[in-house]
Amino acid sequence: MSDTPIVDSSFTAVINAPIEKIDLPGWCFSLAEKEYQGCSPAHIAAGFTTTPDGRRMSINVEIIGGSLMVQHYVETLGRKDHLVLESVSDVFTPSGRTTMHILWEMSVRAIDDQRCEFTNHVRSTATDEFRIFLDRQGIPLDVARAQRQPMSIAHNQNETPLFAASIERAALRN
C-alpha cells in the first residue's frame, strides 16, 4: 500500500446539541439510506455490515468528479466523540476500475453545554493499484492529484454541514 497523498481535506460545522447526546458510531452504523442521500447530491446508497472478523463496516456509494466510488469503511476507532474509518475503495472511472485508500475521520468537541463543533476530515492516498492504473495511461500522479483535489475538497465541504445536521437530528431524537 502506498502512502502517497492524493487529497487531504477537513471542514467543520456546528451541531446544536450537547456533546453528551452525540454518538458518531451510533449515527454512522444506523444511517438510513435516504438520510445518507440527503447529505449530498453525489450520495447514491449506504448500508452497513461487518467484516469477517466482526468489525463494523459502513458501505457508501457515491460519485465524485464523474467516478463512481464504492467505499468499504471499516471502523478503526469508535468513540462517541471520535470515529475513524478506513477503506480501500473501488473507483470506477471512464478509463476503468482501480482502488484508492481513504481514511475518514469524524470528531466532535464541545463549544458550550448546548453546542459542539463537528469536524469531517477525509484523506485519500494512492494504492499500488492506483499507481499502476495511472502508469498504464501515462498519467503522472501529480496530474491525477491536481484533477482530483478540487472535486473531492468541494464534495467534503458541501457534505460536512449536512452530515452535522443529520448527526444533530439523531442526537436530539435520543
Rank of each mutant, 00 (worst) to 15 (best):
Q71N: 13
V7Y: 04
D135W: 00
A13L: 02
N16Q: 06
V122A: 06
R136M: 15
S10V: 07
E105H: 09
F92K: 05
A154K: 14
T51N: 08
K80R: 14
L141F: 15
A17K: 02
E35A: 09
V143L: 12
A164W: 05
A171M: 02
I22C: 00
E159H: 07
E62F: 02
L83W: 04
P94G: 02
I63M: 13
F29H: 06
P18H: 05
Q149Y: 04
L68H: 12
A13F: 07
G78E: 05
I6E: 09
G26S: 04
I139R: 13
D113L: 00
E105K: 08
R115W: 02
S58N: 11
V143C: 05
S67P: 09
I64A: 07
T93I: 09
D135P: 01
E62Q: 08
D53N: 10
L31W: 05
R97E: 15
E168V: 03
T127I: 13
H82G: 00
G47N: 11
E159Y: 10
R148N: 08
A13H: 06
I22E: 07
Y36G: 07
N174L: 03
I44M: 13
N120P: 08
M69E: 14
T51S: 14
R123S: 08
N174K: 14
S152Q: 05
W104E: 05
H101K: 12
K34T: 14
A154P: 10
C116E: 10
N156P: 09
E86L: 00
Q157N: 06
D53T: 14
R55A: 06
D112K: 02
